[in-house]
């Protein structure tokens, strides 16, 4: 893959994942996996099995559909949702502040990829992996919706797959299928958790 295409995909993925922390609309969070998995598949295509990009794109489509259904398929007045969906913590501090947090995270990831690269990973995949882990951890620890926590889990999983592919992991179609199965199961689990619940019955 030409370096410029790889750079463009990396920038698009970083911007796309970063936007998950800026945009409050849950529909954006639910749609993101499709685009991110498509881009992630293209990114690893040169070092992974043939058909990986298509498999990841299809997985992303299924995952996004499940997350969309979990957002809109259920009435919200039947109980309490897993998260309050209010502007708490960093979410209450305004878009400019959240953008500055993202820029600081970007600077941190850039510095870490330069000074402490993971084993022998090239710079671009290394920076992307660190970035996916950072944004995933941020979304899991600081979600506004159940869906955004789930997208955080999916980003962490995608990050591990990017690093695995560029480290030259001898993967098989069984592994690729199971990777997609894990993503879809995460989406199903998150959709289940997004069902409004009644308090103190667990």
């Amino acid at each position: 893959m030409p370096a410029i295409v790889q750079d463009a995909i990396t920038i698009a993925m970083m911007a796309g994942t970063g936007s998950l922390f800026l945009v409050k609309d849950p529909r954006w969070a639910a749609s993101a996996p499709f685009f991110l998995f498509l881009l992630g598949g293209l990114f690893v295509a040169s070092s992974a099995l043939p058909g990986t990009a298509l498999t990841l794109a299809l997985t992303g489509a299924v995952v996004s559909s499940i997350l969309w259904l979990s957002d809109y398929g259920l009435p919200s007045d039947r109980g309490q949702r897993l998260f309050d969906e209010t502007d708490w913590g960093l979410w209450g501090l305004g878009a400019v502040f959240r953008l500055s947090v993202l820029l600081m995270a970007l600077a941190g990831v850039y510095g870490l990829a330069l000074t402490a690269p993971f084993v022998e990973l090239p710079f671009i995949p290394n920076a992307l992996w660190y970035w996916l882990l950072a944004i995933g951890a941020l979304l899991i620890s600081h979600p506004r919706y159940t869906v955004s926590a789930g997208v955080g889990l999916l980003l962490v999983h995608l990050g591990f797959y990017v690093a695995f592919s560029f480290l030259g992991g001898n993967s098989s179609y069984w592994f690729l299928a199971l990777h997609s199965l894990v993503d879809i199961t995460i989406a199903l689990a998150v959709a289940y958790l997004a069902v409004p619940v009644t308090e103190a019955t667990g």
Binding site: Q80, L82, T146, A189, Y192, L193, V197, T198, E199, A200, T201, G202
Partner: peptide, 8 residues
């Protein structure tokens, strides 16, 4: 996950 918020 059960059926409660803390369990979720």
């Amino acid at each position: 996950s059960g059926r409660g918020r803390p369990a979720g």
